[in-house]
Design a protein around this nucleic acid. Structure first.
Length: 597
RNA sequence: GGUCCAGUAGCUCAACUGGAUAGAGCAACAGCCUUCUAAGCUGUAGGUUCCAGGUUCGAGUCCUGGCUGGAUCACCA
């Protein structure tokens, strides 16, 4: 039974019968009643005064009376100005709860046979992953699991930026200063080792540039003429010519990086179904240029370069092929998008999880695809997210202010360990169990912290203040789950089942119980909302509200002290439903929940 | 300069897509552990929602114009 829908259906009937309107339930919406008023659902009558031709109070009164008389689930109503507040009967709440508790898959829909692809992570291979990548990965992964919960077949993908000048820089520096170092010989994680040489390159490069500037060159000239940069450019040329030695080194160093990344991804708990490598795809899209020219969508300039004019759409001219015939980033993205839709013809959406610094790029990309006549272009979506800033501003690798992903995850676990030990919470845990808990809590805090903010907004991370464990945090939710788990263990010991009988009648509900059931009935709507907005923050907010409300109940209402067996049974069952929902929601976020903490 | 995004309590964030007196957490202060885990709960204090207009029964939310911060506009990726 869907209370929300039943109410809207009846309201539509009331409007139609009382005022001769022609309104469908779907066009109506209910909102939660503000807590200073009595009721759960509120219907705003202001928009319907034109139809009723009455005062707001009278209109609300008529609808309210209609509902109360004809609908069992409406216990009572009250009207304040244009707001009709509806109270739902406990019987209806219990029925609604019953259908939730008996649905093992509450929140998960069966497969719908539809397919989407979500691309995320997509790192460069010249340096380790950092805090920004964490936000990217957690966002992309979470959006994927949310769509999976809705029944979609989700292809989790990343395109690894394994070629280009950046990796050549690391290669040049490794040759010059590496003395044959390898991850094995140094014990350094592969991505860290390669990153070290990238930094070495930049250092040498800066020194050369400033020397050249001192000798009279402009900055621009100096950056082009610095000897080490010339070496990197030469390296790239050799790579493109597939010169054997260069290619072998490139493969070796990338392999180091991948092994390092694997460890990091594994720690993060994110996975991929499909890996694309830029070295395989960087030439794709060149073919499409001719097609675009034939269609008259693109045009060629005298020097042979190919462009598209988007000024009519409020954008600029955009280059698609250089005069020397080589492709640019945009060309490549056009090509790979087309290839993906060829690979998966039933793909309904293609979601790119990429920072908002590339908003313009994706506007242009999608627009070009549309102009080229691909109807699926409408299914492309840029999941654009804001940067993670430090109190000092942007993270700068050159200034050494980058927050490393591995380090941060380790620190979070250390902090979790500290907190747990301070609180003396691990009685009876063996070492492995304790380690597992620290990891759950530390990572949970980190993931929750990064996901609770609306993706579009930039967010601040203050390493000094470190991530909280109280209040609106991952550990708070985990803690709520652990407490309920303790209750459920006790219930099992005393022989109380977790799932109450259909006919069970706990009698009058506590206000907190009603509120929690209301939230439980909202779960699927919120999942839909999160998917539609590509916003895991909708889920974090929901679970937080649920946990918070449950904790109020926990504080005020005794379960095992309850004499009435039906009530006791209901409360156990009710707690179980909350735990299950918390667990599901956290699962979307990639956060595990502990049975004890 | 053009375009896009953001601006809400001291700090970090919400506000169900235009609804009631803008809510949480952190930090501060005051309470609650002999009773299911105090990583919890309750209370106090904290606001000209950047500014100025407009639209309407109603605006943090929509429109216009400013201000501030960020991004972007390369034959870079």
């Amino acid at each position: 039974m869907n209370i929300d829908f039943s109410l809207r259906k009846q309201i539509a009937l009331a409007l139609n019968e009382s005022f001769g309107a022609d309104i469908t339930p779907d066009s109506l919406s209910l909102q939660p009643t503000r807590k200073e008023f009595t009721g759960t659902y509120t219907f705003v009558t202001f928009p319907f005064l034109k139809i009723s031709k009455m005062k707001p109070e009278e209109t609300g009164e008529i609808i309210g009376k209609y509902l109360k008389t004809d609908l069992e689930i409406v216990k009572d109503y009250n009207v304040v100005k244009g707001f009709l507040n509806l109270q739902v009967s406990d019987r209806a709440w219990i029925e609604a709860f019953s259908s939730i508790i008996h649905n093992e898959n509450h929140g998960f829909r069966p497969s719908n046979g539809r397919r989407i692809m979500v691309e995320y992570s997509s790192p460069n291979t010249n340096k380790p992953l950092h805090l920004g990548h964490l936000r990217n990965n957690f966002l992309g992964f979470t959006v994927s699991t949310i769509y999976e919960a809705l029944g979609y077949d989700v292809v989790k993908a990343q395109i690894i930026n394994d070629r280009g000048i950046h990796i050549c820089k690391s290669m040049v520096a490794w040759i010059k200063y590496g003395y044959g170092e390898t991850p094995e010989s140094t014990g350094v994680k592969g991505d860290k080792l390669v990153g070290k040489y990238y930094v070495a390159f930049e250092k040498q490069f800066r020194e050369e540039v400033s020397a050249l500037v001192n000798s009279g060159l402009t900055m621009e000239e100096a950056e082009k003429k610095a000897p080490i940069m010339l070496e990197a450019i030469e390296m790239l040329r050799k790579w493109e010519a597939r010169e054997a030695e260069t290619y072998a080194l490139w493969e070796t160093m990338n392999k180091w990086v991948y092994r390092g990344f694997e460890i990091t991804y594994d720690h993060m708990g994110v996975t991929f179904d499909k890996l694309y490598y830029e070295s395989d795809t960087y030439l794709s899209g060149k073919k499409i240029v001719q097609a675009g020219l034939d269609k008259g969508v693109f045009f060629k300039k005298e020097d042979g370069s190919v462009w598209i004019d988007l000024s009519a759409d409020g954008l600029d001219e955009k280059l698609l092929l250089r005069s020397d015939g080589t492709a640019v980033y945009m060309t490549q993205d056009i090509g790979t998008a087309i290839e993906r839709f060829m690979e998966f013809p039933d793909l309904e959406k293609l979601v790119y999880t990429v920072g908002n610094e590339q908003d313009y790029h994706f506007n242009v990309l999608f627009l070009i695809l549309k102009k080229l006549g691909y109807s699926w272009a409408d299914g492309c979506h840029h999941l654009s997210y804001g940067m993670v800033d430090l109190p000092s501003g942007k993270m700068k690798s050159r200034e050494g202010t980058v927050v490393d992903a591995d380090d941060l995850m380790d620190e979070m676990e250390q902090t979790a360990k500290q907190h747990t030990q301070d609180l003396g919470k691990i009685e009876g845990f063996n070492e492995a169990q304790a380690a597992k808990l620290y990891r759950m809590v530390g990572l949970g805090a980190l993931k929750y912290f990064l996901l609770k903010v609306d993706p579009r907004k930039r967010m601040l991370f203050n390493p000094e203040e470190s991530i909280q464990f109280q209040g609106n945090t991952g550990p708070f939710i985990q803690y709520t789950y652990a407490r309920i788990s303790a209750l459920l263990r006790r219930a099992k010991e005393t022989g109380i089942g977790l799932i109450m009988n259909e006919e069970a009648s706990p009698g009058e509900l506590h206000a907190h119980e009603r509120e929690v059931i209301y939230l439980l009935t909202q779960f699927e709507d919120r999942i839909n909302e999160a998917a539609g907005e590509y916003s895991p923050a909708v889920i974090t907010q929901y679970i937080y509200d649920l946990a918070k409300e449950y904790n109020k109940f926990y504080q005020e209402v005794s379960i095992f002290g309850e004499q009435d067996e039906a009530k006791k049974q209901f409360r156990v069952s009710f707690s179980y439903a909350v735990a299950r929902t918390i667990k599901s929601g956290m699962e979307f976020l990639g956060i595990e929940v502990p049975e004890r903490m």
